[in-house]
Amino acid sequence: MSLSSHVEELKKKHQNLSVKVEEAQRAPGSNDLEIASLKKQKLKLKEEIERLSISA
């Protein structure tokens, strides 16, 4: 897998997590721990994308 395709895959995962976070925040009785976990995953992906983009 090339670096650019890997970064694109990470971006897709980041976008999917964004959608999940939004849905969880809108859902009545949503679990705050689950939302926090999703946000942490998003942040890790964002940091990885930035790290790979800089080194490319």
Rank of each mutant, 00 (worst) to 15 (best):
N31P: 08
Q41C: 00
I35L: 04
G29P: 03
L3Y: 04
E23P: 08
S2W: 09
S2F: 10
S2I: 09
V21A: 00
K12L: 09
S37W: 13
A27W: 12
S37R: 14
E50T: 05
E8V: 06
R51C: 00
K39T: 00
D32G: 10
S30A: 09
Q41F: 00
G29L: 05
E9A: 15
E8P: 02
A24V: 01
Q25C: 01
E50M: 08
V19Y: 07
S30I: 01
M1I: 15
K11N: 03
I54G: 08
R26K: 15
E50C: 05
K13I: 04
L38N: 03
A56F: 09
R26T: 08
K42T: 01
E48N: 02
E34R: 07
A36Q: 11
H14P: 05
E22T: 11
E34G: 03
K44C: 10
E34M: 06
E23F: 10
L45K: 01
S2G: 15
A27I: 06
A24H: 09
K44I: 10
L10H: 01
E8N: 10
A36K: 09
G29M: 03
I35V: 03
R51Y: 03
A36H: 07
K42N: 05
S37G: 14
G29C: 02
K42Y: 03
E23N: 11
E47D: 15
Q25L: 08
S2V: 07
S4Q: 15
G29R: 00
V7R: 04
S5P: 01
S2Q: 09
N31T: 00
L3M: 08
S4Y: 10
L52P: 00
L33I: 08
S55V: 13
S55W: 08
V21Y: 01
L43M: 12
N31K: 03
I54F: 12
S5E: 12
S55P: 07
L17N: 00
K40L: 15
P28G: 07
K44T: 13
R26H: 12
I35P: 06
K12T: 10
A27H: 13
I54N: 10
Q15M: 11
K20Q: 13
H6S: 13
Q25A: 02
R51G: 00
A27M: 10
N31F: 01
A56L: 13
K44S: 10
H14R: 13
L43R: 12
L3T: 08
K13N: 07
K20N: 06
G29A: 03
A27E: 15
K42W: 05
H14A: 09
Q25H: 07
E22P: 09
S4W: 04
E8I: 05
S53L: 05
E50I: 04
E8C: 06
E47I: 08
L10A: 02
L10G: 02
L33S: 14
D32A: 11
R51L: 01
Q15I: 12
A36E: 14
K11R: 06
I49Q: 00
S53M: 07
L38G: 03
